[in-house]
Amino acid sequence: MMNNRKLEGKVAFVTGGAQGIGRAITLRLASEGANIAIADLNLDAAQSVAKEVEDLGSKAYPLQVDVRNKEVIIDSVNKVIEEFGVIDILVNNAGVGIFNPIFDIDEKEFDLQYEVNVKGLFFVMQTVAKHMVEMNSGRIINLASQAGRRGESMALSYCMSKAAVISMTQSAALALAPHKINVNAVAPGVVDTPFWVEVDKKFAKLLDLPVGEHKRRTVESIPLGRIEQPEDVANVVAFLASSDSNYMTGQTLNVDGGNVLS
């Protein structure tokens, strides 16, 4: 962990902040001095990560949040403001990924990815941004994906949802720029988390491959020659959360080892 403390005294609200990429982001921002509201569907995991945040010298506030429920979002944001007084940084990380061939995508799968990755992300952003407008400052970082940059034959609904994140980031950046709120996104590639273990199992079934083979081939194709770690994503999020990115807004930064060049 770096210890520059560039976010000393800031308050970050991280959705999906207790697992995988979200946990790495939570801990990285805490190592920079930020106090963290850890919003996650799994409250036990959020409470566990809260202890890690406190070990880094920052305050933590774990909450159980389902981003599909607008009332829960509004209530949670109000609770965080009551606890800390402000929300300086929003990291919209909560998301789901489901992979199927085009003719096997059903309405339930389509709706879930839309509700979490698009609708949930938007209403979290909208709710927190209303508070940031009052402060006339803020940082919003949305988690997109390399899947939002290009089509994938087995991931139409997921690609759709992440492309929407990139589009929302651009529009929100323009809408909120007059209020000195920077809105940017990060597009990770193949990240070494339990999620990708499940993705590999699904593709093994879809493509009739041994478990582990799809992941091996995918990693082999990455120009930088290694699988991405959650900390690789967290490092870029920390940059976007800091004053180092003051003159950036509406951008989606590819953090994918060179998979997508744009």
Rank of each mutant, 00 (worst) to 15 (best):
residue 173 A to I: 08
residue 150 R to F: 10
residue 183 V to K: 02
residue 130 K to S: 14
residue 77 V to M: 03
residue 152 E to C: 08
residue 178 P to T: 03
residue 65 V to C: 04
residue 222 I to R: 00
residue 7 L to V: 00
residue 241 A to Q: 08
residue 112 L to S: 13
residue 123 F to N: 05
residue 30 A to E: 05
residue 188 P to C: 00
residue 191 V to S: 04
residue 245 S to Q: 12
residue 97 G to T: 11
residue 73 I to A: 05
residue 82 E to F: 03
residue 136 N to A: 07
residue 228 E to I: 06
residue 241 A to M: 05
residue 143 L to W: 01
residue 191 V to I: 15
residue 88 D to C: 10
residue 189 G to N: 06
residue 58 S to C: 10
residue 21 I to K: 08
residue 20 G to D: 04
residue 240 L to Y: 01
residue 182 N to M: 07
residue 233 V to E: 06
residue 58 S to F: 03
residue 252 T to K: 08
residue 64 Q to L: 06
residue 114 Y to L: 07
residue 86 V to K: 15
residue 179 H to N: 14
residue 132 M to R: 07
residue 44 D to Y: 12
residue 71 E to H: 01
residue 214 H to F: 15
residue 52 E to Y: 06
residue 214 H to E: 13
residue 95 G to V: 10
residue 202 K to V: 12
residue 36 I to M: 12
residue 168 M to V: 00
residue 47 Q to F: 02
residue 109 E to Q: 15
residue 19 Q to I: 07
residue 70 K to Q: 11
residue 214 H to D: 06
residue 91 V to K: 02
residue 59 K to D: 14
residue 174 L to Y: 10
residue 241 A to L: 00
residue 76 S to G: 15
residue 209 L to V: 07
residue 175 A to T: 14
residue 15 T to F: 02
residue 227 I to K: 09
residue 213 E to M: 07
residue 18 A to D: 09
residue 150 R to C: 06
